[in-house]
Structure formats: C-alpha cells, structure tokens
Write a protein that binds this DNA or RNA. Structure first.
Length: 394
RNA sequence: GGGCGGUUACCCAAGUGGCCAAAGGGGACUGACUGUAAAUCAGUUGGCGUCACGCCUUCGGAGGUUCGAAUCCUUCACCGCCCA
C-alpha cells in the first residue's frame, strides 16, 4: 500500500482487508487478480505525475497479476470534470488513436509490454443506450455528487457543474464492471469514481465491487501543487536523461520523501531508510536528491544514461564546467550577440535577450557580455542563462 | 423568459476616462549566495527600435462616444447569481 492516500484511515483499512481476502479467493480459484487503471488520451505527452499509477500497476504485474491498461477513448470525448471551463476541441478518432499509441509507448517504459492488456472503453461505452443508462444512473443521487469535494467546492464557489460531468463517474463504473476488475488503481481525484461509483455499479450489475488503490498525487517541481504541464511544473517523460535528472534535482528538499514513495522502484523498507537517514542527518540532502534523481532517471532511460546524466550534472552545476556536447553554430563575422541568440533559438525574442544581457545572464568564454548590439568579439562558448550553451564559430 | 453581475497577460486576480504594457500573488526566468537547477535574498516577466527615449499590439468579439477608453455607450458570444 506504499504511496496510497485514502484520506480516511477506516477506508484504507477496509480496502486493505478486502484486498487480502480477494487475494486468497483468487488463489483458490487459481487465477491472478484483474487490475486496471484508465487513462484518457487527450494529450500525447506524459509526465512523471502520470506514472504514479503505472508504477503501482507494474508492482501488480511483477507479482503475477493481470494488468489492463484501459484507454478512455470514449470518456475522453466527453471530458473530465477536473478541467471544466475550457472548451475541448473534439478529437477525431485518428487523433485519439495516435495519442493512445504514443501514450502506451511511454507507459511501456514502466509497464511490462508482454504482460499488459490494452483495452479501449469505446468498445462497450459507445453501445450503451439511454435505456441502459437510466437504471445505472438511478443508483446515484445528486446529493451524492454534491458531497464530493470536487463538485462541492465548485458549487460553493458558483463555478459551473455540467450535467454530463455526472456521466463520467457512471461510465467509469461501467468500465470496471466490463473488465470484471478486482482492483482499480487511480489518483485521489478518482476516489469518488472508484469507491462510490464503480463499486455501486458493479454491485448493482451483480459483480463483486472492485477494490480501490488510491495513489497520492505527485507534486510538481515547485513541491506543492499537483504536477501539471499547464502549470509548468512538470517533468516530462519524453525528454533526455540529462533534463530529467536536472529537473528532479530542482525539486525542493521537503518533497523528496514523496517522490521516493511515488516514483521510484524502491521497496517500503528502502524508502523508510531513505527518509530516516534524511531526518537524522546521516544522508546529506544533496546526496539524497542525487540518489533520487539517479533512480528516477535510470527507471526511464537505463542505468548507463542516468550515470551520464549525473556526471553531466556534476560537471555543469557543481564544478561549473561545460557540458559534454555543445551544439555548434556558424555565425557570420559582425553578427551581434542578439542576432546570434535569436538565430540559434536560444531566446524567443530580442527583448528577452536584452533582458538576459542586462541581468548578466549571457557569457562568452566565461566573460559577461554587456552590449546586446555589439558584434560578438570572438568565437567561443556562448552561455545563455544557466543551462544553454552554444559553440560559436565564424 | 426576466433582473443583476462577470469575461484582464502563462494561471489566479486588482483596476470604473488620462499618472495603464496594466497593482498583488503563483509560476517561469536571471543574478548573488550555496549543499544543487534546493532554501534564502535581489531583480526580470507583450513586441520592436537609433533602448534612461520612442513606436506598435494586448484587458471576450465587433462597432461607437471622446483630444484621450481595460474603464462610458450599442451590439454579439460565453459564464454566474436571483426570479420564473
């Protein structure tokens, strides 16, 4: 149950007990547990936050259970209650398919492809009729939805709550039923969908309710707010080992334990030891973070790449040396610093470049440049900000 | 259907005729410092230029009033609250 977050001890105990019972039951029936988690492929690029549930699925896989990676190609057409005010462009089936493919591709950096079933919920949801929906919907009251924090807060704030958003939970419950799931994994934002909706619908349709594994939410690089691309605090999966390593190094010290729990392969004992060593000072926070960054990077890019990323990090930020590979740029003699930066896409606008120069953020071979319009005095290594380098040659 | 209120930069949010490229917070970026791209402190955060000065574009869309509009008027779109 490492990294789980039920927000209620009784619920956690109930789920733990039920999981134990279900394990015994499955064993007697000579079958593995059926575990699933659903993902809506609205965006193609995943970040670390998305991998928390995948890691939990992977653990189940490693223990020999049957894992289904459910792609919500139907639910994603309708929309997720969490972002409400943006009009979502309707994705074409081709776009959804493309997103789903890259989604699965990235997910397989964590999941074992050979042991993962991929299903699409349009397979059954698109066939439900209104007549089918009525008895399903009759399991719920508006009051139940309104007690859900997510909706309640919006209700109190006077934010819109659309009618179709209530379908979402019902559809997710139906997914669980169709997959005959023993266990459903999800983030804390899925608590209602999994515990209230899915269990109710499964029971109503005569199946055994699924057991909820509710994972904590991974904070972003700011350490506080949920990781999300639109907030700019995310660590993308499709990047480089160096970038991932560096981004992990930029998280605040206090969230290290959370990261250790949610996005490493470490066992509970190891995490506890890590936490303890940090708390009593036997592990230096910097070394702890390097260990964390190494583990996370190795997980996605392999040990070797993680090693290289770590070396690059030490060279660049601890010893202030140059990175190994510096891109080259052919400048014409007489080109100004600003022009070179724009041409090499180091900056987005000339104003941005001027600001950087004013802030002493641009260096040539270690010398701070002060005049944006002056021609580059000589070829050399141009450093823009902390981490952008360019070998300028004439 | 009626009445009232709202729509501001990456996000949240102030601004009700000129001192508004637009307060504050978050995020992001830069510098100093260091234990690191952490923490802390300071700064920057629409674009362009002949760059301590000027020009252009932006406050939901389109028109209008005015010497001058994010601010006033008309209209359209969307949202909320109350009434039906």
């Amino acid at each position: 149950m490492q990294g789980t977050e039920y927000g209620d001890e009784a619920l956690k105990q109930a789920m733990a007990t039920e999981l134990r019972e279900r394990l015994i039951e499955a064993q007697q029936e000579g079958r593995p547990l059926r575990v699933y988690c659903g993902y809506d492929p609205r965006k193609a690029d995943l970040h670390l936050g998305h991998t928390v549930t995948m890691r939990k699925l992977r653990q189940f896989q490693d223990l020999g259970h049957e894992v289904t990676f459910l792609i919500g190609n139907f639910t994603s057409l309708i929309g997720d209650p969490s972002d409400k005010d943006k009009l979502r462009p309707r994705l074409t089936p081709e776009e959804i398919e493309e997103n789903a493919r890259t989604y699965a591709e990235q997910a397989f950096r964590i999941l074992d492809p050979a042991k993962t079933r991929i299903r699409y919920n349009a397979e059954w949801l698109s066939k439900l009729s209104l007549a089918d929906m009525i008895p399903l919907a009759a399991n719920f009251t508006l009051q139940q939805f309104l007690t859900r924090e997510n909706f309640r807060l919006r209700w109190e704030r006077g934010d819109p709550i659309y009618l179709h958003e209530t379908f979402y939970a019902i559809m997710q419950g139906y997914d669980a039923y169709m997959l005959q799931a023993d266990v459903q994994v999800g983030g804390t934002d899925q608590l209602f969908n999994i515990v209230t909706a899915a269990r109710k619908i499964m029971a109503f349709l005569g199946a055994k309710p699924n057991i909820a594994i509710i994972m904590g939410i991974l904070p972003g690089t700011d350490g506080v707010v949920k990781m999300s691309k639109s907030l700019g605090n995310h660590i993308p999966i499709n990047t480089t080992a160096e970038d991932m390593y560096g981004k992990v190094m930029s998280i605040p010290d206090f969230v290290m334990p959370t990261y250790a729990k949610l996005v490493t392969r470490w066992l509970p004992d190891e995490v506890a030891a890590f936490e303890k060593a940090l708390a009593d000072g036997t592990l230096h926070p910097r070394d702890a973070k390097m260990k964390l960054a190494f583990e996370i990077t190795a997980n996605f890019y392999g040990e070797e790449a993680a090693q290289r990323a770590q070396e690059a990090f030490v060279r660049l930020f601890q010893k202030h040396d140059l990175p190994e590979d510096v891109p080259e740029f052919h400048a014409e003699a007489g080109q100004s610093v600003l022009e070179i930066m724009v041409k090499a896409h180091l900056i987005n606008s000339k104003s941005e470049g001027r600001r950087l120069i004013e802030q002493k953020g641009v260096r040539l071979d270690g010398q701070v440049l002060t005049d944006p319009n002056a021609p580059l005095p000589h070829p050399g290594i141009l450093q823009v900000g902390k981490r952008q380098f360019l070998r300028v040659i004439f």
